[in-house]
Every structure is written in structure tokens, then in C-alpha cells.
């Protein structure tokens, strides 16, 4: 295998710089109002794009296994809120869905 160190350094540069630059540009500066609103919408739009369409192929061998697990997370978050129980619950539901089909392998 090749020496991967130059690759790793290159990847560090192209992942770190885009994460760092906005902090240096935005901090302590008064932004135009429209830009500020644009930035304030990003948490919601980013979350939407992070969930869809990836959520439909989280367990490719049985897509509805993870979907039903996530369905539990959604229902619990809707009724009670919280993060840890929805996440743990979704893992448990998905686990039982998967062993019901494939057994413990």
C-alpha cells in the first residue's frame, strides 16, 4: 500500500478550511439582514437534506426495518420529546425487525 500521509494531509486541508473560513469571515461582523435570515434557515434545510433521501436506505437489506425504527423515534419525539430514548428505541426496534427476518447471524 502506498504511503497515505500526503493524502491524509490533503484531505485535512480541504475539509478543515471550508469549516474554518466562515468562522473567520462571519464572527464579529454585522451581516446584512437577508444573509442573516438565510443563515438562520440553514439548520432546518440542512436537517431536511440530511434526512431525505438517506433515511430510505439506512438498512438496504430491509429498508422498512430502519424506517419503522425511525418511525418509533418520530412518534416518541412528537409525544414526549427528548433525543436519547428515540435514538435507543429506534435501534432496538430495528434490531428486532432484522432478527425477525434474518435471525441472529
Amino acid at each position: 500500500m502506498r504511503n497515505l500521509f500526503p493524502l491524509i494531509l490533503g484531505m485535512l486541508a480541504v475539509t478543515f478550511i471550508p469549516r474554518l473560513l466562515p468562522f473567520l469571515l462571519v464572527s464579529e461582523r454585522k451581516l446584512p439582514q437577508r444573509l442573516n435570515r438565510f443563515l438562520s434557515f440553514i439548520p432546518y434545510t440542512a436537517l431536511g437534506a440530511l434526512i431525505i433521501p438517506g433515511v430510505f436506505s439506512a438498512t438496504p437489506q430491509m429498508p422498512h426495518a430502519s424506517l419503522i425504527g425511525i418511525g418509533f423515534a418520530c412518534a416518541f419525539a412528537w409525544l414526549r420529546g427528548g433525543i436519547i430514548i428515540p435514538v435507543l428505541g429506534s435501534v432496538i426496534v430495528t434490531f428486532f425487525m432484522l432478527i425477525s427476518k434474518f435471525g441472529l447471524s
Binding site: I70, V87, G89, S90, T94
Partner: peptide, 11 residues
Amino acid sequence: SMSGAIYAMFA
């Protein structure tokens, strides 16, 4: 089973 956990968190 854990591969959907990130989506559960986002949701």
C-alpha cells in the same frame, strides 16, 4: 441495527 440511529437523532 444501529445504522438508522443518526436518522433517528435528526428526526
